[in-house]
């Protein structure tokens, strides 16, 4: 048995293998459910119903997808240029901190939201700028630096919540004071539990898609990622492209923090993000780094989380099944992509 490359995978391969990956993921889910002592079909059904089975469930899924779209876009933009930003979590918190700093009374009126959004993006961009400068100037591996920034930022947030940003009325809880009403994101429609962060996430996805496919900067980002040597030979300003990529990526990740604070929580706490920065990597990879695909995969991932929550309450199977399902989905998808490009031959 050996593997041979397939020069031009046909449509059957391109659709067939990802479909098999999805089936395999469902299979793993059913086995896990069976191990947990529940009826596998019922568990899967309840996940689907819990994710999209009612208006409330659907809205919850959309809300949950919002930060994932932002972090997924941040990762997709960076990875496309082969800039390995593993630090979306840190950039998210940087955005959240700035949103709270500006949204608790320093500014007032209708300017608060746009200013806090821009300032959050700037903060996230700056958090990623350091590691990228180290990369382009000294060749320091950005995987390590961006990853470690997540821990630095988590500790910094703890410090803020125990010190300068601690809510004096918080009964000792480590959380910040609440945003003023003008700093909160309005709902997209009256009576709809969906804030405008979701709309902005969709607009951002289209924006990133336009940048990547229509602009000279996007062309440069893709070329730098696809063949650094050729990009350099063609005269592209590689260093400046990488820095601009970092600013865009960090800014997008920070918008996830901004949207969570201004749209959902209304304050900063250490549990603002249950790993949206890391899950963004899964979202981006499942979307094959396509900005519009990020929206679809973020909805899928959010649906699995929300559905698993509901299922857990009904069937008593732990919500960890969601993490395991996503991990399985990612592994099978990566495998499926590899298999579309090779065939197994005997001999």
């Amino acid at each position: 048995m050996r593997l041979e490359p397939v020069a031009q995978p046909g449509l059957a391969r391109q659709i067939g293998f990802p479909a098999l990956a999805l089936l395999a993921t469902l299979g793993v889910g059913m086995i896990l459910a069976a191990i947990a002592g529940a009826d596998p079909f019922a568990v899967l059904g309840q996940i689907v119903i819990g994710a999209v089975g009612s208006r409330l469930a659907l809205l919850e899924t959309l809300n949950r997808a919002t930060p994932l779209i932002f972090t997924g876009l941040a990762i997709a933009v960076a990875f496309r240029a082969k800039l390995w930003n593993i630090g979306a979590e840190a950039q998210l918190y940087a955005g959240a901190i700035v949103t709270v700093a500006l949204g608790t009374g320093v500014l007032g009126g209708p300017v608060v939201l746009p200013i806090s959004a821009l300032a959050a993006m700037l903060a996230g961009a700056l958090v990623l700028l350091g590691p990228v400068l180290l990369k382009v100037r000294l060749g320091v591996d950005e995987v390590v630096t961006t990853l470690l920034f997540n821990f630095i930022m988590a500790l910094f947030v703890s410090y803020l919540l125990e010190g300068p940003m601690k809510d004096p009325m918080g009964m000792g809880w480590p959380k910040s004071p609440a945003l003023i009403p003008e700093a909160r994101l309005p709902r997209m429609a009256e009576g709809l539990r969906l804030h405008w962060g979701f709309g902005l996430a969709l607009i951002s996805a289209v924006g990133v898609w336009v940048i990547q496919t229509r602009t000279t900067l996007g062309f440069e980002m893709r070329a730098v990622g696809a063949n650094l040597r050729a990009a350099r030979f063609a005269g592209m300003p590689v260093t400046s492209v990488l820095i601009k990529t970092a600013l865009l990526s960090g800014g997008l990740a920070a918008l996830a923090g901004w949207a969570q604070v201004a749209g959902v929580k209304g304050h900063l706490s250490a549990d603002l993000s249950p790993g949206f920065g890391y899950t963004g990597i899964i979202v981006a990879m499942l979307a094959l780094l396509h900005p519009l695909g990020v929206v679809v995969s973020a909805l899928f991932v959010a649906g699995v989380f929300v559905g698993a929550d509901a299922m857990s309450r009904a069937a008593g199977v732990p919500t960890y099944i969601a993490d395991m399902l996503l991990a399985a989905a990612l592994l099978f998808m990566v495998l499926a992509l590899a298999l579309t490009r090779v065939r197994v031959v005997r001999g």
Partner: peptide, 8 residues
Amino acid sequence: KTGTVGDF
């Protein structure tokens, strides 16, 4: 390696 971007 230098003259073209293969995936472009």
